[in-house]
Amino acid sequence: MTSSTGGSMPEKQPFKQVFGYPRGLTERPTHYCPGCMHGVAHRLVAETLDELGIRERTVGISPVGCAVLAYNYFNCDMVEASHGRAPAVATGIKRARPDLYCFTYQGDGDLASIGMAEIIHAANRGESFTVIFYNNAIYGMTGGQMAPTTLVGMRTTTSPGGRDPLQKGAGYPICMAELLNTLEGPFYIARQSLLSSREIIRAKRCVKKAFQLQPRGFTFVELVGTCPTNWGMAPIESRRWASENMLPQFPVGVFRDREKEGDA
């Protein structure tokens, strides 16, 4: 991650700053658990706001879930939404003020369970905002319950014997990027993972792209991350586990890029 802090550094300084605190984040310490990747995802968004110079024209929407307090961490105007409704709130904001940039930051329970109707319909209408979807296959804030993206066989506090779609009717993991890709409305859909530096750099490219393309329509980036606390694993172990188990279920890639399709 090579970002500058913007134009604040005096010219002709003997040292060139190659890494700094993004202006897009406040300096408040986060409440996230050790090894959690929400902080990484936040930073990717914050750097993007800096690099595109849109921080002062952006409204972020925080969800209900672990990222509920994101309004304290993003250094731009923020709105706190009720559970799952961030895409509806973003619709209201962008219909009122299409000149602003707007993003929702949502977890898997928020977006893929209680907020399924809102995300599908906002995507289908092609509302011009960006969705950052953090998928770690579990409800973190409420204490590790089964999420719509929980893997088959994965143990959670509400699937103590492992998610069982057949015997216990617990359903299968829902793949949001693929699901949204069945709609005509979205402009850009990508999924990346945050499990290594290389992956984080790739994810950053997609986040930035999603904001760049936002004026043209609905842009969606799913970020596969971990939840060491509720998975009951050490941070490094959780990354390995995610690589081996999450990525086969949630393959990374760019699913939709209308700009490229337009070029072709």
């Binding site: 409704r85 509806a88 709130v89 619709t91 209201g92 219909r95 009122a96 109707a117």
Partner: peptide, 18 residues
């Protein structure tokens, strides 16, 4: 898509002063 969504859309629009 629903009354729930509509009530959150007005929330968003009001948040930006509309």
């Amino acid at each position: 898509e629903s009354e729930v969504a509509a009530s959150n859309m007005i929330y968003g629009a009001a948040a930006v002063g509309a």
